[in-house]
Simulated assay, not measured.
Amino acid sequence: MFDLPEEMGLIAVAVQQTQGKGRGGNAWLSPVGCALSTLHISIPLHSNLGQRIPFIQHLVSLAVVQAVRSIPGYEDIELRVKWPNDIYYSDLMKIGGVLVNSTLIETTFHILIGFGFNVSNSSPTICINDLIAKFNREEGTELKPLSADCLIARTVTVLERLIEIFQEKGPNGILPQYYKYWVHSGKQVRLHSEEGPLAWIVGIDDYGYLQVHEEGQGVESVHPDGNSFDMLRNLIVPKH
């Protein structure tokens, strides 16, 4: 990938994986019916996104959701983003995820984006076509099922546009779209431990970290503690 011309894209698409990897080395189940791919992109270090590389996972999660919800008729399919890198059915069930690895060579970030989401496989959780079928039953519509190939292509196309907007306008060009689809509005989390202080989630900062408001403390950016399987458990306020 390091020898590719900068303007050339590279993507690997799998029908099934036998050794899929998730965050922290966890196994990623990859049955037939998932959209599974790894995308290579190049980002200049001295650019809006190059200075805020953690935002890439948010852009990809948003691209997956918009790939479905930008199709006429499919706007109300309950697909959402969960910070920092999950795709969810409403706020109930994980339907996909994103894993980003970056290598800086001179002044260029080489980014490998792995993303997988359930399209036509009802296990291990639920899939996009299940949500479409549910919507058809409830609303009396006749939306057609979608294919993994179609949604991978749409995701990459949407991602290219989101990157263009981010490079031109920075986080503020993207955040209104991100908040439209995220699951965290009005939600609370605990800081430091299971018995730690409660804080309200208010947004994400200019570098892609979660912002919370703890009473009497104002708004602070927080990081996962690195130990919990759920990234929103035991969030840590970093020392300045």
Rank of each mutant, 00 (worst) to 15 (best):
A27G: 05
A14T: 05
D76R: 14
E168W: 03
T108C: 07
W182C: 04
L39E: 09
Y181T: 08
S37Y: 14
I126T: 14
T18P: 08
P72C: 07
T103D: 13
H40I: 09
I113N: 03
C127V: 07
H110D: 08
H192A: 12
Y88N: 05
D86I: 14
L198D: 03
H213D: 06
I113D: 00
Y74I: 09
T157D: 15
S102D: 10
G170I: 12
L112H: 13
Y89R: 03
I41Y: 08
V237D: 02
Y88L: 04
V183M: 01
G20Q: 09
P124Q: 01
V32A: 10
L210S: 09
R69E: 10
E78I: 01
I201E: 08
S122E: 13
R23C: 07
L79I: 14
L10Y: 02
G116T: 01
A35K: 02
E142Q: 13
G24C: 10
Q66N: 11
M1Y: 13
G186A: 00
I111Y: 02
M93G: 05
F135N: 10
L4P: 00
V219F: 01
I165R: 08
M231G: 00
R233A: 03
Q217P: 04
S47E: 10
P145R: 06
F229Q: 12
Q188Y: 14
L112F: 15
E220I: 06
S123V: 09
G97D: 13
L99T: 09
G226N: 01
G208P: 08
E215F: 06
V219C: 05
L112P: 03
G97C: 12
S30Y: 08
L146A: 04
Q188F: 13
G33L: 12
S90F: 10
Y181L: 14
P197W: 05
D91F: 08
F55E: 04
A67T: 02
A148C: 08
E78A: 14
A14S: 12
G97K: 09
H110S: 07
D130M: 06
E7V: 05
Y178E: 04
I95P: 03
I111K: 03
H46L: 13
N129R: 02
I71C: 01
G173S: 07
D3E: 14
P171H: 05
C150E: 15
R190C: 06
L59R: 05
V64P: 08
G226K: 00
L159R: 01
Q19A: 12
R154W: 01
D76F: 13
V202N: 03
S147L: 12
V64W: 08
I95T: 14
S47P: 07
I71D: 03
D206V: 06
F135R: 11
N48T: 12
A199K: 02
R154Q: 03
I152Y: 00
Y89M: 04
L143I: 04
V81A: 05
P145M: 04
N85Y: 08
E106K: 14
L49Q: 10
Q177R: 11
A12N: 07
V15D: 15
G196F: 11
I201H: 09
V64L: 10
G208C: 10
Y181R: 10
Q17S: 11
L235I: 07
W83F: 06
L131A: 00
E220M: 14
S120T: 10
G73L: 07
V64C: 14
A67W: 04
H192R: 15
Y181D: 11
N85V: 06
H223F: 12
F55L: 09
I152R: 02
